[in-house]
Deep mutational scan, measured.
Amino acid sequence: RNRTTFTSYQLEELEKVFQKTHYPDVYAREQLAMRTDLTEARVQVWFQNRRAKWRK
């Protein structure tokens, strides 16, 4: 699989949710996936990576 390149809009939306919660539930991830036109799996992985970056 190729690396996903996120648009500025997608990143904005993802970051907005990340500010509210670092662990969005499956419903929140589904909503976000629909809004950003990404798969729920991509959203889930983005949050995993974002949490790792945040911990550093």
Results as ranks from 00 to 15, higher is better:
M34P: 00
K56V: 09
T7H: 08
R35M: 04
K16F: 11
K53T: 12
W46K: 03
V17G: 07
P24I: 01
E15F: 02
T39D: 12
K56A: 07
R50N: 04
Q19R: 09
K20H: 09
L11N: 08
V26R: 10
A28L: 14
S8C: 11
W54G: 13
A41V: 09
Q48P: 00
W54N: 15
W54E: 15
T36P: 00
E15D: 03
K53L: 12
L14F: 07
Q44F: 12
S8L: 09
K20N: 09
Q44I: 07
V26E: 06
N49E: 14
K53G: 13
W46D: 01
T39N: 13
R51D: 01
A33S: 08
Q10D: 03
T5S: 14
N49P: 02
E12T: 07
M34K: 14
R51Q: 09
K20R: 10
K20G: 07
T5F: 09
T4A: 06
T21A: 08
R3L: 14
E40N: 14
E12S: 10
T36K: 02
A52M: 10
E30L: 15
E12I: 03
R42H: 07
N2P: 05
K53E: 15
D25R: 01
D25Y: 02
L32Y: 01
T5Y: 13
E15W: 04
N49W: 06
F18S: 03
Q10P: 00
K16P: 02
W54P: 10
A28G: 04
Q31W: 06
R50D: 02
L11D: 12
E13A: 09
K20V: 12
R42T: 13
T39S: 07
T36I: 12
Y23F: 06
R1K: 14
V26G: 15
Y9A: 12
A28F: 05
R55V: 14
A28W: 04
L14Y: 00
D25G: 07
R42V: 14
K56M: 07
V43M: 06
Q31V: 08
H22T: 04
N2F: 07
Y9N: 07
T5P: 08
Q19N: 11
E12K: 09
V45H: 13
T7I: 03
R35V: 07
Q31D: 06
K56R: 07
V43Y: 03
P24H: 01
H22S: 06
E12N: 13
A33E: 04
L11T: 06
T5H: 13
E30A: 06
D25T: 06
Y9Q: 05
E15R: 01
W54H: 15
V26M: 09
R29E: 02
Q31F: 04
Q48R: 11
Q44K: 09
R51F: 15
Y9C: 09
Y27V: 13
L32Q: 00
E15I: 00
R55D: 10
L38S: 11
V26D: 10
E12P: 01
R42W: 09
R1F: 06
A52G: 08
Y27S: 11
R50L: 00
T39Y: 01
Q10G: 03
R51W: 03
A33H: 03
L11C: 07
N49R: 05
N2H: 10
A28C: 11
A33V: 07
F47N: 01
R1E: 14
W46M: 02
L38F: 03
T5M: 15
A52Q: 07
D25F: 00
N49S: 12
T36S: 07
A41I: 08
V17F: 13
K56Y: 10
L38W: 03
Q44C: 15
Y9M: 11
E30I: 04
T39E: 08
Q48N: 07
D37E: 11
T5A: 10
K56G: 14
E15M: 02
L38T: 05
E15V: 02
Q19F: 10
F6I: 12
T4V: 07
A28E: 13
Y27H: 15
A41Q: 11
F6G: 03
R29K: 07
L38P: 01
T21V: 08
K20W: 07
R42P: 02
L32G: 00
F18M: 02
F6T: 05
Y23H: 10
T21F: 13
F18R: 01
K20F: 09
V17M: 12
K16Q: 06
N49L: 10
Y9L: 12
R35C: 08
V17D: 03
R42L: 12
Y27F: 13
F47D: 01
K56S: 13
T39V: 05
E40G: 07
T36A: 07
R50K: 11
Q48F: 06
R51E: 04
R35F: 00
V45Y: 12
P24G: 01
F47E: 00
